[in-house]
Design a protein around this nucleic acid. Structure first.
Length: 228
DNA sequence: TTGATTGTTACCGG
DNA sequence: TCCGGTAACAATCA
């Protein structure tokens, strides 16, 4: 949460995204924002009300105003710090210039379970905890499968499905991983197959819950057999 | 008031 | 150097 006052009165010239990291460009500096678990944008029309709660940054145009509440990162970076940040972020499934090969190299050489690798933002970026369980279920891959046991063909399916699902998520502004569902209405605004469910929507088997990287993961042992 | 949480990072030991 | 575990941190809501 440092240095934002340096940007006072300056004009943002563009926004870049790398995984879940947002970069607001200001000539030779960028405002680096990461919303973490709880950060949120609050958009309103001008004239804006007083900032409410933990507003770290307020950005204004002539007509609108955005407050960023509770991000886990909110700092000004110079171009060398920006380059360092980008270098440590794995290929972003939503970027057209993403190089899936980088992710494949890491995954195919690792005995770490794919469920952990998909959450490692230096391996592949953009996938979060809900998408992890959903993508692996959709592609019938056990999260416990070691990376080096994943075939190239399977990796390609995981990557493509991540691209597919995240694009849908951006468009709908909510997590939708069930084919054909248009709108999200549930508590967290997601429409999902397996996350937080008790039974598999495909085979009705009981869903097993496990913890991976200290986050809840869900698996249907019938549809997602472990290859080990 | 408490607990859970669409996330990341640093640090430590093996 | 890699890997897995843990804690710290954050704000909001039910």
């Amino acid at each position: 949460m440092e240095g934002a006052e340096r940007l006072d009165g300056r004009t943002c010239t563009g926004i870049e995204t790398y995984g879940k990291h947002l970069l607001y460009c200001f000539d030779d500096e960028v405002l680096h924002v990461h919303l973490g678990l709880f950060g949120v944008f609050k958009l309103q029309k001008c004239p804006a009300t007083e900032p409410k709660g933990a507003v770290r940054v307020r950005m204004k145009s002539k007509s609108h105003c955005v407050d960023i509440n509770g991000p886990s990162r909110c700092e000004v970076l110079d171009m060398s710090a920006r380059a360092k940040l980008i270098a440590r972020i794995g290929p972003d499934v939503l970027r057209s210039d993403a190089d899936p090969e980088r992710a494949w190299v890491r995954i195919s050489r690792s005995k770490t379970p794919i469920g952990l690798l998909l959450m490692d933002q230096s391996v592949i970026s953009g996938i979060g905890n809900i998408y992890r369980s959903e993508i692996l279920w959709r592609q019938k891959v056990s999260p416990e499968t070691p990376g080096n046991a994943i075939s190239r063909e399977t990796f390609d399916r995981l990557w493509s499905d991540a691209v597919h699902l995240l694009k849908i998520g951006v468009k709908a502004n909510s997590i939708i991983t069930v084919d054909g569902v248009k709108k999200a209405r549930s508590r967290y605004g997601e429409r999902v197959n397996i996350f937080n469910k008790s039974h598999c929507p495909a085979c009705a088997s009981e869903i097993r819950r496990l913890e991976m990287a200290s986050r809840r993961a869900f698996i249907c042992d019938t549809c997602q057999p472990n290859v080990r």
